[in-house]
Design a protein around this nucleic acid. Structure first.
Lengths: 185, 185
DNA sequence: CGCTACTGTTCGTCAAGGCGAACAATTGGA
DNA sequence: TCCAATTGTTCGCCTTGACGAACAGTAGCG
């Protein structure tokens, strides 16, 4: 319906407004996106039901993912204490992954807390194409990354790598913890 | 261009194919989505540049976020060592936020590492509507959450709350660290 | 063998999106 | 002050997406 369309457009308009000080006028944005400024004008005014191509061009020109222009939100406060929560992938004694925030609804990422002990490297099979993983090491040290080139990381270190190739996590010190953000396509 | 459109359609088609065994035919999906099956047929065949309304209806009927039907992937391995990286919001001596992974391109979230010392509570102004924050505490303790009801958290604890209301982060112990995933709409 | 109910396809029609040009309304130098 | 270069708006024209009906291709059952 035009309610959704209106949402989209308003969001796009607000994003542009934020960068208006940096000289991002309606005309300029239309030029960068390669769409008619008349089209953009109508869009921002709340009318219209843009095609994906148009929306795509707009998102690229704005430097934001299309999702930013579309998907709706959801509020809630939730706490999971250390030691609580569902434990997935706990098939081994030296590696426990706690699922903090699962993907649905409305999100594209899974959030895990890792508690690991030194031992065998844990090798993960490739996830869906386009998946990205973000790892932040807490206390401890670990060897993390694609199987063909893992990196040794210490407390506070951060690494990101494609999740659609085999990758590895191997704790190098006792009671090594980490946070993993698994981002789906 | 039709390359992007083709991508979208192919993805949608493959999602449906996955559920074909559960009786999700093209006709059935079109009916549920409230769009003409001719439209869906052309879409899945790779032709067309669907409007947002159409795509929206399709995504809802499939029970997947629109992002799933659109956004492309991106590969890369990147490491930011503790102490390195751009430091934003470091206006205070007792609170430093390091930006690990910024939102564009292709993502909907910002990833921060927080290093904080006990002191004044850091109050964040509301972000864009629909924003969600996920916080995982590393070493230390902190008071985190919406300003009207923050929660005391210890190592490994996790909390999520809306980012579009005023919220607070106050370290309770020296050298408290945390990981914050800020998820945009 | 039909008959039925379904699959997904292609056709013609209508409405709507996207385009460019012409349009007012502001700003900024010279 | 006047001219130039912006701003974002509104107009007709053309293309194209979305629709519904008619279409061919397949099971499944009496």
């Amino acid at each position: 319906m035009d309610t959704s369309a209106a949402l989209i457009t308003l969001i796009a308009a607000s994003i542009r407004r934020e960068r208006e000080r940096t000289g991002l006028s309606l005309t300029e944005l239309a030029k960068r996106a390669g769409i008619a400024k008349s089209t953009l004008s109508q869009l921002e005014s709340g009318a219209g039901n843009p095609s994906v191509e148009t929306l795509w061009a707009l998102a690229v020109a704005l430097g934001v993912p299309i999702s930013r222009l579309i998907d709706p939100p959801r509020p809630h406060v939730r706490v999971i204490r250390a030691g609580e929560g569902p434990v997935t992938h706990s098939e081994r004694a030296d590696y426990a992954a706690t699922l903090l925030a699962s993907c649905p609804p409305g999100a594209r990422r899974d959030l895990f807390r890792i508690d690991a002990e030194p031992g065998e490297a844990r090798v993960s099979d490739p996830h869906n194409p386009g998946t990205m993983e973000h790892v932040i090491i807490g206390p401890g040290r670990a060897l993390v990354g694609p199987i063909e080139g893992p990196v040794e990381l210490g407390p506070g270190d951060y690494i990101t790598y494609p999740g659609d190739v085999p990758h590895v996590f191997r704790a190098l010190e006792p009671r090594t913890t980490a946070v993993i953000v698994m981002e789906h396509v």
